[in-house]
Amino acid sequence: MNSPVEGSAEAEAVLSKPRFHLDLWLLFTVQNWILDVGRPVVMLVLPVDFFPVNRPGAVEYLHILCLNAAQDSATPAVRLGIICVVMGTSLHLVADSVTRRLVLIGYQLHLSVRENPVMQELKPASLVDAFELLFYYDDTLGHVMWCVPLFLVLFLFFSGSFSHRNRKQEEKMAPAAWMLLVPNAAYYWYLITERQTFILFIFTFFAMTATVMHQRRRGLVPDSNGLFMLCRYSFSAALVLVAFWVSCLWSDGVLRKKHPGLIYVPQPRAVYTLHLQQNGTT
Rank of each mutant, 00 (worst) to 15 (best):
W189Y: 11
F228L: 03
A177K: 14
Y188M: 13
S159A: 13
T204W: 03
Q196F: 13
F135P: 03
T211A: 14
F158E: 01
W178C: 15
Q196K: 15
C231M: 09
V144P: 00
Q169W: 02
I192N: 08
L227N: 09
H214F: 11
H214R: 12
S224H: 09
G142S: 05
V144D: 11
F206Q: 05
A237V: 07
G160P: 04
T204M: 12
S163L: 04
T211D: 05
A186T: 08
Q215D: 02
A237G: 00
Y190M: 11
D139I: 11
I192W: 04
L200N: 10
V148C: 07
I199M: 12
S234K: 02
L150W: 13
H164E: 11
Y190D: 08
V182Y: 07
P175W: 11
N166P: 01
W146V: 04
T140M: 08
F235D: 01
P175S: 14
D223Q: 02
R195K: 15
E194N: 15
C231A: 11
E194S: 15
T197H: 06
F228R: 03
R167M: 09
P175G: 13
L156K: 10
Y190P: 09
Y190R: 08
A185R: 07
W146L: 15
L152K: 06
F158T: 05
P222D: 04
N225F: 01
T140Q: 07
A176V: 05
Y188L: 12
E171D: 12
Q169F: 03
R232H: 08
W146G: 05
F198S: 11
T204P: 03
